[in-house]
Amino acid sequence: MDSTAVRTLAGQIRLMGFDVDGVMTDGTIWFGPDGDLMKGFNTLDGHGLKMLAGAGVEIVIISGRSSAAVRHRAANLGITTALLGVENKRDAMRELAAERGIALEHCGYMGDDIVDLPVMRACGFSAAPANAHFFVLQHARWIAEADGGRGAVREVCEYLLDARGALDALLQDCLR
């Protein structure tokens, strides 16, 4: 698909889903001395998610791993739908889209590993961080220059905002 067609799809996204490990984080998982799971999140990515939500795109998290850290991060960002411990992300996205009356071609998903491919291929728009698995990179419609947890989420948010014609106004508002 050519870049113009991908940009057109991107401009029509109403619901954007994100994986966590390898997308919103760099994929590293830390365990504390008591077995507490910890993850590191990028603040620039977080602001991108807030800007995208502010432009009317619903943000959802669909992750195969369940984590209190992700629940806290989602709440911190105002993301009300965080589906964690999901085995079939494609079915979860289909259910979300149906509940909201949104066609799958107006949904997007950013993933990094082969388990994300079914949901990525079901959506109208798909994205991957630069360091995604090679097979995911072959199938993503759009690829960030940054790695997961290192700005890839911010890049896709700004790409979607730009495709909607909303990025320039947001940036100009920062100068007032």
Rank of each mutant, 00 (worst) to 15 (best):
M1A: 15
D2V: 09
T4Q: 15
A5L: 13
R7W: 03
R7N: 11
A10E: 07
A10V: 07
A10T: 02
G11R: 07
R14F: 01
L15M: 11
M16G: 06
G17C: 14
F18E: 03
F18K: 04
D19W: 03
D19V: 05
V20K: 07
G22V: 08
D26Q: 09
T28I: 14
I29S: 14
F31W: 09
F31L: 15
G32Y: 04
D36Y: 00
L37E: 15
M38N: 12
K39A: 12
N42P: 00
T43V: 15
G46L: 07
G46K: 07
G48P: 05
L49T: 09
K50C: 12
A53F: 05
G56D: 05
I59Y: 01
R65I: 09
A68G: 04
A69I: 08
V70K: 08
V70A: 13
H72Q: 15
A74W: 06
A75R: 12
T80N: 14
T81E: 05
A82Y: 02
A82K: 02
L84H: 06
G85R: 06
G85L: 01
N88W: 02
R90T: 00
R90F: 00
M93E: 04
M93H: 09
L96R: 10
L96Y: 04
A97C: 14
A97R: 12
A98K: 15
G101N: 05
G101W: 04
I102K: 08
I102Q: 09
L104R: 03
H106I: 00
Y109W: 10
M110F: 04
D112H: 13
I114R: 14
V115I: 13
V115G: 07
L117Q: 04
L117R: 07
V119R: 08
M120Y: 04
R121M: 09
R121T: 11
C123R: 15
C123H: 09
G124D: 10
S126F: 02
A127Y: 03
A128W: 09
A130E: 10
N131S: 10
A132G: 12
V136P: 01
H139K: 13
H139W: 02
A140K: 06
R141D: 14
I143K: 13
A144L: 13
G148Q: 07
G148N: 07
G148Y: 00
G149F: 04
G151T: 04
R154L: 02
R154V: 10
E155A: 05
E155R: 05
Y159T: 06
L160S: 01
L161R: 08
R164H: 10
R164G: 08
G165T: 09
D168K: 11
D168Y: 01
Q172M: 14
R176F: 03
R176M: 08
